[in-house]
């Protein structure tokens, strides 16, 4: 009985130590575990232009411009505080649209324009049929939460 109890305490201590160590390690590497930076992060961290980074945020309403006869697309990514102009030439995911959260990988040019080499769409945690979404929008209960940056 006492040996069992001792093993139980040992296991509890072991788990406590393991949990603390993991929490400390994760806290230490916090900035490296981030999958993308928001436009505000980018302004704050002053990321060097030659480094490839990922940025994330919402595609600003009314900012998407397509040039005729070119696959190049320009839009602005916002986190509702800072915005960043993005230029991209390539295939866009099905969920890409204005107001949608996206993550773009690329480099920040010296002119302050982000040149994306890949654009991924981020979707939110809301799932509903189109009729419900339309009814919510009609009744004014719609909340734009798609891909809200933290």
């Amino acid at each position: 009985m006492t040996r069992k109890r001792r093993r139980l305490y040992l296991l509890g201590l072991f788990l406590l130590g393991l949990g603390t160590a993991t929490a400390l390690a994760l806290a230490a590497f916090r900035d490296n575990l981030v999958f993308f930076y928001s436009p505000s992060d980018l302004a704050r961290l002053a990321v060097a232009g030659d480094r490839a980074v990922r940025i994330g945020g919402l595609v600003e309403q009314g900012s998407v411009e397509r040039r005729a006869g070119s696959i190049e697309i320009r839009f602005r990514v916002t986190d509702l505080q800072n915005t960043l102009p993005v230029v991209y030439a390539g295939i866009l995911p099905d969920l890409f649209r204005e107001g949608q959260g996206i993550v773009a990988q690329g480099r920040l040019g010296p002119d302050g324009v982000f040149r994306a080499s890949e654009v991924l769409a981020k979707h939110d945690e809301n799932y509903m049929p189109p009729e419900v979404a339309a009814a919510l929008k009609r009744s004014g209960h719609w909340q734009e939460t798609a891909g809200k940056p933290k």
Partner: peptide, 12 residues
């Protein structure tokens, strides 16, 4: 692949 535009990303 169809929604995000990628099969895999190394996110957390």
């Amino acid at each position: 692949q169809p929604m995000w535009g990628t099969w895999w990303v190394w996110d957390a």
